Amino acid sequence: MSDTVESAAAEFARRQHSPLQKVQHQLHGKPWLSPLFLLLVAFVAFFIATPTFLTATSMGILLQQTAVVACLAVGQTLVILTAGIDLSVGAIMVLSMMVMASLAQDGGMPGILALLLGFVLATAAGALNGFLVTRVNLPPFIVTLGTLSIFTAIALLYSGGSSIQAEHLPRILNILGEGFSIGDFRLTWGIVVVVIVYIVIGFVLAQTAWGRYVYAVGDDPESARLSGVPSKRILLGVYTVAGLIYGIAAWVLIGRAGAATPNAVPDANLQSITAVVIGGTSLFGGRGRLIGTAIGALIVQTLQFGLSQMGVDQQWRVLATGVLVIVAVAVDQWIRKVKA
């Protein structure tokens, strides 16, 4: 009898919600809905402003430009799901890229071995971040702010500040810049690799105990610990896996840029964090999906690409990105206040 009464009371409460509260509940359960709506609005707006925006050629270029940030954003999502943040994403990617390229330059080392060593280095860099957070008990912001400077300096010192062009690199390091065309629409293998990364990590988060533990640690670390979740081990694993993903992003970047340069993607940190936050992943941890991250990365690049086609200056594009971040965080705060 009591169960029936409680069920009826809950149903009555739901009916009393205003339209805005109903939207709030929907976004709380499916945080990727709001960025999807924003993406559709952006597509329509830019199509009206520049009719060439929605052409097959333009869409192919947009996806190619999105690939690197989208890949970095996967690792950033893992970290933010645990209520952390990683400011070293771009530095780890660039360091890994320069090591891969320098080792394999002009046949100095077999390309596959150089690629694997780049992955190992990126994974170790992520593990270092995780060690400092979990074993030394330093805040993720401070740790990754410090390693941002360290990894950036090492990359510059190691490379001597010089770029390495594609013709000096083996094909395996350049292959992700190649691809195939469907009419005027061109896809690169780099895009395919990023999609595979999303599928694999998405499956791990949704279908494995490790994925459930990641959400639990981000939602309430103390409760997770008391429930028997090995919180520190999970956190260390998150930063380590994120490092490997940054190494994959380095490989994608070489193919995309046609060169390895220590000054590549200077705003990678901002763009990856923006993509994750806009995609509905909460900065307070425990809530978010990779589908939202993918949409968020598309929004970031759509904004840059669309405004560029309109001839808007770079300064205004950066301004627009900053506004998007603030709005996304404000929406996240509002969604988290949802009431039963």
Rank of each mutant, 00 (worst) to 15 (best):
M1S: 12
S7V: 12
A9V: 15
A10I: 06
A10D: 12
A13V: 09
R14W: 13
K22T: 15
G29D: 12
P31D: 13
L33V: 15
L33H: 08
L39R: 00
A42Q: 14
F46V: 08
I48T: 11
P51V: 03
F53Y: 11
T55Y: 07
T55F: 06
A56M: 09
S58T: 01
M59H: 02
M59A: 05
I61E: 04
I61A: 08
L63C: 00
V68E: 07
V69D: 06
V74A: 12
G90V: 08
M93G: 00
V94T: 06
S102D: 06
A104G: 09
L116W: 06
G118S: 04
A122E: 00
T123P: 10
L128V: 15
T134Y: 15
V136E: 15
P139I: 08
T147I: 13
S149T: 14
T152M: 11
I154F: 07
I154V: 09
A155E: 08
G160R: 11
S162N: 11
S162F: 14
E167L: 11
I172E: 12
L173W: 03
E178V: 02
S181C: 12
W189N: 06
G190D: 07
V193T: 06
V193C: 06
V194C: 05
V194S: 03
V195R: 00
I201A: 00
I201L: 02
G202V: 00
F203V: 01
A206C: 02
G211P: 01
R212Q: 10
Y213L: 05
D220T: 01
S223F: 13
A224Q: 08
P230E: 00
S231D: 08
L235E: 03
L236N: 10
V241F: 07
V252A: 04
L253Y: 05
I254W: 01
I254N: 04
G258P: 09
N263Q: 09
V265S: 13
A268R: 03
T274Q: 11
G280S: 07
R287E: 03
R289C: 04
L290F: 09
I299T: 03
L303F: 12
M310H: 08
Q314S: 14
A320L: 02
G322W: 06
V325Y: 00
I326D: 03
A328Y: 01
A328T: 00
I335T: 03
K337W: 11
